[in-house]
């Protein structure tokens, strides 16, 4: 558990401010995630959760703050270099290449790998049995849940140390939600640090190790997932009270 201990964290985000043109959408957010940890990012709509992920990837301009991955200060690194350093990002929407087959999607995920792409893709199909049968089909023919799994698998191709996932269960049936979460747990058990944005609070706290609640761009609550279950403050933050 690294909640309060940046020294052992694999991915640490410190005092990050970020936003598009006008003001900051994310304000002074600090997050630390260790190996084998799933941290979930909760909060009402417009809290800046997705923006924070993009800001970490430098897809959204960051105005202040520090980002460290595996002990290296990566604050000034471009997206491409971050990926090469072992940070993977899985967007919520448009997260696969629809015209490419499942295998080709995986191959593109491993674009930066020098060798062993085929073998790694096979490992991914091992890890995601739902995709195996569809491996030669175009991604556009997959169901929503399968797409999200493919998106995860694509992100895992280069064997990242940290994985940022934006709402992997949005729009899925409860059964498929479970499938996605158990995959995330499997991924965690291979040693990856995971930061997930999630809408469904109950399920998220069920599976995650730690949780961060963002409201209007600021961290309003952090803690171990199990401690936050049934926490009234959490509920009131969602309803819009000043917890």
């Amino acid at each position: 558990m690294t909640l309060m201990n940046p020294a052992t964290s694999l991915l640490s985000v410190e005092g990050v401010f970020a936003g598009y043109g006008g003001g900051d959408i994310v304000k002074n957010v600090t997050i630390n995630i260790a190996e084998r940890e799933i941290a979930v990012l909760l909060g009402p709509n417009g809290a800046g959760k997705s923006t924070l992920l993009k800001a970490i990837m430098r897809l959204v301009p960051r105005r202040a703050g520090r980002v460290e991955v595996r002990g290296a200060d990566v604050s000034q690194w471009a997206t491409e270099r971050l990926i090469a350093h072992g940070v993977a990002y899985v967007p919520q929407l448009r997260n696969v290449f629809p015209a490419l087959t499942v295998l080709e999607n995986l191959e593109m995920g491993g674009y930066s790998m020098r060798s062993g792409v085929r073998e790694r893709a096979d490992e991914m199909l091992e890890l995601f049995p739902n995709l195996r049968a569809a491996s030669r089909r175009a991604a556009s023919t997959l169901s929503g849940g399968e797409r999200n799994l493919l998106a995860l698998a694509r992100g895992l191709m280069p064997g990242p140390a940290a994985l940022l996932v934006d709402e992997p269960t949005a729009g899925l049936s409860p059964q498929y939600e479970e499938v996605v979460w158990s995959q995330l747990e499997l991924i965690r058990n291979t040693g990856v640090a995971i930061l997930v944005v999630e809408q469904n609070v109950a399920t998220a706290l069920e599976h995650a190790d730690t949780a961060y609640v963002l409201v209007l761009g600021e961290t309003r609550l952090t803690g171990r997932a199990e401690d936050l279950k049934g926490d009234d403050t959490l509920t009131s933050l969602y309803i819009g009270g000043e917890g």
Binding site: M57, A88, P91, R94, V96, F97, Y111
Partner: peptide
């Protein structure tokens, strides 16, 4: 070819291509 697939990937979804590490 890897390059040709990357072309199709960029054509499909440039943002995703970028975060997949495609130059």
């Amino acid at each position: 070819t890897k390059f040709g697939k990357a072309q199709r990937a960029v054509s499909n979804n440039p943002e995703l291509a970028r975060v997949s590490g495609i130059p």
